[in-house]
Amino acid sequence: MKSLLLTTFAALALLVSPAHSAEHAEGMMRVTFKLFNKDSTATCFLLRDGADVFLVTAAHTFEKATGESSILVLREAGEEATWKRQDKTVAIREGDRPLWTKHPHQDLAVMRVVLELPEDATLPIDAVKTDGFPCFGDPVMLLTYPARVEANGAGFPLARQAVVASFPAETMEKHPEFIIDATAWDGDSGGPVFIDAGEGKPQVVGLVTARINHVENIKSERETRKIETPMGLSKALAAPLILETIRLAKNTVDVPASGR
Rank of each mutant, 00 (worst) to 15 (best):
A151T: 12
D107Y: 02
T101K: 01
R97G: 06
P134N: 04
T101C: 07
A127T: 07
F136G: 14
L115C: 14
A91F: 04
E116Y: 00
L143S: 13
T130L: 05
E94H: 05
P98L: 06
H103R: 10
P134H: 07
V90I: 15
K88S: 15
R112M: 10
K102F: 03
T101V: 14
M141R: 02
L108A: 07
A109G: 03
V128D: 01
R112I: 09
L143C: 07
Y145V: 03
H103E: 11
P104S: 13
A147Y: 11
A147V: 11
L108N: 01
V110N: 00
N152E: 15
P124G: 12
P118Y: 03
L143M: 14
T89D: 07
D131W: 01
I125D: 05
T122V: 15
V128C: 02
P104Q: 09
K88I: 15
H105Q: 15
L117A: 09
P118W: 06
T130I: 07
I92T: 02
A127N: 12
P98R: 08
T122G: 05
I125V: 15
T144Y: 01
M141C: 10
E119Q: 14
L117K: 10
A91M: 09
K102Y: 02
F133N: 02
H103I: 14
M111P: 04
R112F: 05
R148S: 11
L115Q: 11
D138M: 10
D107A: 08
K88C: 13
G95I: 11
L108C: 04
Q106V: 13
L142R: 05
D107H: 06
D96T: 15
T130Y: 00
G95L: 08
I92N: 01
P98Q: 08
G132L: 10
V149D: 11
V113S: 03
M141P: 00
I125G: 08
P98V: 06
D131P: 00
P98D: 05
V128T: 03
L117E: 08
R97M: 14
P139A: 13
T101F: 00
C135R: 12
G137S: 11
A127Q: 04
G95V: 12
G132V: 14
W100P: 02
H105D: 15
F133M: 11
A109C: 04
P98E: 06
P98T: 04
V114P: 00
V128K: 00
M111D: 04
R97I: 14
P124Q: 10
E116R: 08
P134A: 12
A109F: 00
A121Y: 01
N152A: 14
R112C: 09
V128M: 01
E150F: 01
F136A: 15
V113T: 00
I125A: 13
R97P: 04
L99E: 06
P118N: 12
F136E: 14
D126E: 10
V90K: 01
H103Y: 05
G95T: 08
F133T: 00
L142S: 07
P104W: 03
K129W: 02
E119G: 08
T130D: 13
L108H: 04
K129H: 10
A147E: 15
V113W: 00
T89F: 01
D131V: 13
K129G: 07
A91P: 03
L142M: 12
V90S: 01
E119D: 14
D131E: 10
D126R: 06
T130C: 04
N152I: 12
K88N: 11
L99R: 12
A151S: 15
V90M: 03
G132C: 12
P134M: 05
P124C: 11
